[in-house]
Design a protein around this nucleic acid. Sequence first.
DNA 1: CCTACCGATCGGTAGG
DNA 2: CCTACCGATCGGTAGG
Lengths: 196, 196
Amino acid sequence: MARPKASATLSRKEQIVQQAALLFKTNGYNATTMRHLAEQVEMEAASLYNHISSKEEILQHICFSVATDFITHLLKVEKSAQSPAEKIEAIIRFHIHMMLTRFEDVYVSNRDWKHLKEPALSQFLQQRRQYENKMANIIADGINKQQFREVHANLAVLSLLSGVRCVEFWHRNKRGISTQQLTEDLVTLLLKGLKA
Amino acid sequence: MARPKASATLSRKEQIVQQAALLFKTNGYNATTMRHLAEQVEMEAASLYNHISSKEEILQHICFSVATDFITHLLKVEKSAQSPAEKIEAIIRFHIHMMLTRFEDVYVSNRDWKHLKEPALSQFLQQRRQYENKMANIIADGINKQQFREVHANLAVLSLLSGVRCVEFWHRNKRGISTQQLTEDLVTLLLKGLKA
DNA sequence: CCTACCGATCGGTAGG
DNA sequence: CCTACCGATCGGTAGG
């Protein structure tokens, strides 16, 4: 019954979730088997169920952990006194930061959320919709204040969130560039475009 | 032995591949079963194998058909007398056009190519790498000619290809905007950025 | 945390 | 194009 104390080492459950994220990222949710996961954490497949209740529970853990981080940050930005342009830049920088520091989790959350079952699926989609709407509001505000171009605000949101995901591909073929330059170049490309 | 003539109606094999693309898009490659596909084209699962040799052959069909279209277009652009800026814009417009006209195929190709088996997998990756390299060369040329900002050319490629994929999300929640406005706004966002 | 095992389902084949 | 079926493998459970 005793809860494991917070410590530098991961609990068995956290180890399982972390390894699962790695396997999901590499092979996809469906193609990852509980037997393969068990092998990675060095136990039998049946033993996994002493730590987690189902394969999908692991996926939920990953998806909602990432979603919570993004929402928490967005709420903080929303309340700040920054201009729309500063807010959007802060959001973009946070996305890049998340992609760089929690790569597997973000990757899996982005691609495999479709395998969530109800009611988790609807909850996840609702959170994402709210997130996109809040971003769209900031952009609409920025358009009003003539800080942004007159584009469809919802499209701009999708375009930014999509563009930020290029870090996924980047990670794949590590080319000679520091994370600092990656971040600055990407922020420039998304906010000011490629054209000089 | 007789090849089916080109006609307005699809051959049985083409019907199967088209339906498969729709199912792959909706449920993913692994989660799509041959039995479900058979149901959609109104035959028994075993009968599918009179038209195709394996589930993966269908995926190959989709992925390489899309890849060929993109490569063919890129080679045409490469040979043209356009400036780097014009070339990149033409490429972006073609990507948007493909996303709008062959949505399922492009979507599946983008996400499910990982399930290709060797040697198809390596061939696909090689084609993509060549595509990205050719685009990077055009961008590097544009940077030299001061048409583009001084950013990492390979990152710019990934950022553009990633940004263009927002049409995937767009399709999901059809909001009130014409494909013309979608195209123009997206081209603006990718080439000139959000900031006014 | 393990052994033993189950019901379901999968992609694909044999043979017509 | 179908009936009948197979070997493999899956997520998960029982019982210790």
